[in-house]
Design a protein around this nucleic acid. Sequence first.
RNA 1: GGGCGCUUAGCUCAGCUGGUUUAGAGCACCUGCCUUACAAGCAGGGGGUCAUAGGUUCGACUCCUAUAGCGCCCACCA
Length: 879
Amino acid sequence: MNMELGSYNHLDFEDEIYKYWLERGYFKSSVNNSKKPYTIVMPPPNVTGVLHMGHVLNNSIQDVLIRYYRMNGYEACWIPGTDHASIATEAKVTKYLQDKGIDKFKIGREKFLEYAWEWKEKYGGIIISQLKKLGCSCDWSRERFTMDEGYYKAVIYAFVELFKKGYIYRGYRLVNWCPVSRSAISDEEVYYKEVEGKLYYFLYPIKGTKEFLEIATTRPETMLGDTAVAVNPKDTRYKKYIGKTVVLPIVEREIPIIADEYVDMEFGTGVVKITPAHDPNDYEIGLKHNLEFINILNPDATLNNNVPEDFRGLDRYEAREAVVERMKELKYLTKIENHTHKVGYSERGHVPIEPYLSEQWFLKMEELVKPAIEVVKSGKIQFFPERWTKTYFHWLENIKDWCISRQLWWGHRIPVYYCEDCGFYYAYTEAPLKCEKCGSKKIKQDPDVLDTWASSWLWPFAVHKWPEIEENLKYYYPTDTLVTAPEIIFFWVARMIIAGMEFIGEIPFKKVYFTGTVRDEIGRKMSKSLGNSPDPLDVIKEYGADALRFTILRLAPLGNDIFYDNQKCEIGRNFANKVWNASKFILQNIKNIKLKEIKEVKLDIFDKWILSKYSKSLKKLREEIESFYFNDAAVTLYDFIWSEFCDWYIESSKIALYSDNNQDKENKASVLYFLLVNILKMLHPYMPFITERIYRILPVKETESIMVSNFPTYDENLVFENEEKTVEFLKEVIYIIRNLRGENKAPPATELNVNIKLSNNREEDLIKNEIYLKKLAKVKNFTIIDEAYKKAPMEVVGLGNGFEVYLILEGLVDVEKEKERITKEIERLTKQIEGVSQKLKNPSFLEKAPKDVIEREEKKLENWQTELDKLKQNLLNLR
RNA sequence: GGGCGCUUAGCUCAGCUGGUUUAGAGCACCUGCCUUACAAGCAGGGGGUCAUAGGUUCGACUCCUAUAGCGCCCACCA
């Protein structure tokens, strides 16, 4: 490693530094009872996943926390892994095979799984290697996969336990069916899209009369499965028909006219066709009125043999047209209206789902949910932002049983075994050799697999050797903070809490941080399908991982969405560059100088000022990180390092560094070095690479790597209130001189003379520290005067808090410009004075406002009044 | 249909429990500087009736109500 710093280029060292950390094993954690653990389990990304901006945000936050607590003496452990993502992966592998001309259903389960594992080994887990580029300090030796051997055992064990308790049951139910994956999906996997559809009006002839009932439907093809027609019992128009029957056109089936409150008299014609097997509402009505359930669909959403021959085998949309066409021929079609409505789509297949009757496994939720509600209500688990608890409670309090079976192959196969002879079935962790009821050896396992979330809900403890209760589980569980997206509050967060309470009897995490959504510059969610998400790896290449991390955290207020575009990474990159150059400056200037402990240094006023600022920033930073205000923490770092340390302290330090006084040099270098070391540490959780790179070439340090150094702690002895105020005063004087100089376009290199009139007893401060004034404001000489000069136009005036500055410009004054400037100032002041005096004239203000507020206002008025007089005077002097 | 959130400079956002903030920052813009850490920089500057209308209060960007626009989440309307 080069011991000199050249110019900043992240490509020179980021990869190398990461390798160094890995070699040294700094990410590894082990049970250490002399330390408190700090644990995070990474929300496992899908094996099929590719890193996107959401992961960057999420994992940057986790890494900040882990690095911060590691440096604070905790046994920090970040457990990574990937999710097998049953349905998503199966879809991907199916597509992959299709492209090779292989039909999944032809090759069968065994062969398919072989291909799937092959595919997983080859393409899965890319995302994990990408996280390394971001600098994530995960304990990679603990990496898990939700279908690895041990995890598989945990999932099966959990299922069997729940089965034994009677929480798992089989039911012939209406489920959301995805015709592409040919599987049931959960309610949470359905998303709704507004669709321009049509509302078709059909006539159904009433049996034994010449009359008709007119119904309206958006899905005409389902009429082939109708088993009733319903009206509202209160509807006077139709009362007389209740109990009669209609003859279902095309099918020629005789079906009853029933009455049910559910029917909205206002909508359509007030008559509803009832298809219990293909609509959730109709299903309920079907149960209530004991109707026939006729399933008309095959798993791929073509029509089955329960419909008239002409329609068999048609796709559902072909069937729709065919039905409409036939109804038209029969003169039963009265009209077609445009109708926008919401249609449920499969999150996996991206086609409309079909409500479909099928045999599925369900998990009873009613009992399981109770402790999960309790631990959040009592505050044992805290949500950040807190408002998400509302969503959480709403879902849990209205929970429905969870359909946990999927008609897929990639996943954990349901461990229920059936006897083909006597029909007995039960769940076992190991396949039984014979039926425990009849002894038959003809046993077969249930073909379905479990919903992915029925495995990932065990994540916080299944990453250890659970169900074995061993050392690691005892030490690391519960974890500290879960960092995740609010979109999966039901899918995952709630269910992990349920599982933790059920299986371990203890919460899985103490705090949940919900990140915002990363959006593009026009507010759209970044997604692969929209193609609006930049590839983080490209961004890292261009700007550096440090820059990306810092930028995204800078932009992410607690739980709010962030609008990202690559250009914003300049914030982080420029800041990194600044840190780099400041470090370079310090390292160059401490060479051959004997460094002292900060306690041994004779501190001057700027030293005390910066140490004070440093201490306060440090305190603030710690509070912000610990309470998850990551963007505020980024601002704290940025402002302290750039605006105070670099802009003022380093600049002021040059006076001593470039002087001939060795004592001064030693002192200054020692303070600079002290601050450099601590600044690098403070910054390390946000910008791990650059801080490590610089740390490694530091001449004096406590540890080899910054990763395992101690995070600085707040030290009261480094706070100097008085000196802080004095320097703020000096800064103001300097600032005003610079301002006057700039406004009057005085050449920057020219040293000017200044007269200063004080009304704040700071004469001594000014004289004692004149060197700073002279160097930082390029002042040749200054004179403290008792009375304002009246030598304009050679002078311009600037007003500060308790002082006036007269810059002597000797012919450089642009009189007209200066007049303009002062006039503007006068206007501004006049307005302010008006405001305050109005306030002070208000009797109720004087009566009711607290004394200190009134005093403050009076003081304000007084000051402004004097300033105004000065300005008016000066304006007169200008001619 | 319910619930939640947002609306502050051209853009992206700070401003948490009402009066020390003359409403701040970064980017963009204007002026002057290649000053031996940094032009990915330095020193200055301009720019906002804090979405709208009411209300509470001595006092509101900050609290309350209504309205508008935007965005999420939940809900079975054929």
